[in-house]
Amino acid sequence: MSDVILKMDKVTKIYRRGRSEVVRALDKVSLEINPGEILMVIGPSGSGKTTLLNVLSGLDKPTNGKIFFNTSRAGEGFTHTNKNESDAKKKGKDKHLVDITEWDEKQLTNYRRHNIGFVFQAWELIPTLKAVENVESSLYPSNIPSLELREKSIKLIRKVGLLDKEYAYPDQMSGGEQQRVAICRALIKEPRIVFADEPTGNLDSESGNQIMRQMKLMSREGAAVLVATHNIELRKFADRMVKIHDGQITY
C-alpha cells in the first residue's frame, strides 16, 4: 500500500484570460504529499501556488493530469465511488489511490468535508461568530452533540494558547490570534491534509513563527500540511520543500 496521501501526476491547469491570452498556471506538475509532513511550496506571486492548492483541494479542476487521493487514509465518515477503482484492482494498481479529478461536485465536497482543512492568509473567520463558534462551524453539519463540540472547541482554542479568548469576536483579536482560531477551525475536524496559503502573510515575524509552530504540531498529529508561501524564511519549519516557478515544480 502506498504511503502517500495525495499524489499529483502531470497536472496541468490552463486559464484563459480574455480571448487570446492563455495562462499555464500549472505545467505538468507531479508531486507527492505524505502524511505527517510539512511540505512547503515556495514561489513568487503568480507562480501557481494558489492554483496548486485549488486543484489539490478539489476547489478547481485541472485541465490535464490526475490527482490521486489515498482513501485508506481518509477521514471518518468519508465515502466515495470511483468508476476506475475496479479497473485499478484488475491492473494490480493500488486500489486505494483514487483519482479525484473524476469526481463530481458532490464527491469533492464530501472529500473536503472529511479530509481537508484550510488556513488562509486573511484568516477568513466569520465576523459574526465568536472564536469558539468559528471553530465549531467546521462541524456544524455533523452529528456531534453540541456540548461535546463546544468542549472540543474550547480545548483546542486553549491548546493554541488563546486563553480567555474563546468568546471573543474576530475583531476583538489580533491577527495572530485570529490565525490561531483559523488553525483550530481547520484542526477540529481532524483533517488528513491541511492547505495553508500564506498563513503568515499578514503577521509580524513573532506571530508568524508561532503559527508555524502550530502547523508543526498539526503535522505531528498525522496531518499532511502543505504550506504555500513566498517567504523563504519559513523553510526552517518545513520537512520538505519544493519551489514553484511559472507553474513548474523545481526541487
Binding site: S57, K106, T109, R112, R113, I116, Y140, P141
Partner: peptide
C-alpha cells in the same frame, strides 16, 4: 460571498 466561499471550502453542501 466570502463567508459562502469559506463554508464551501470547509465542505458545506450547497443545501447547508
Amino acid at each position: 460571498r466570502r463567508e459562502v466561499a469559506v463554508l464551501r471550502a470547509m465542505g458545506y453542501k450547497k443545501k447547508e
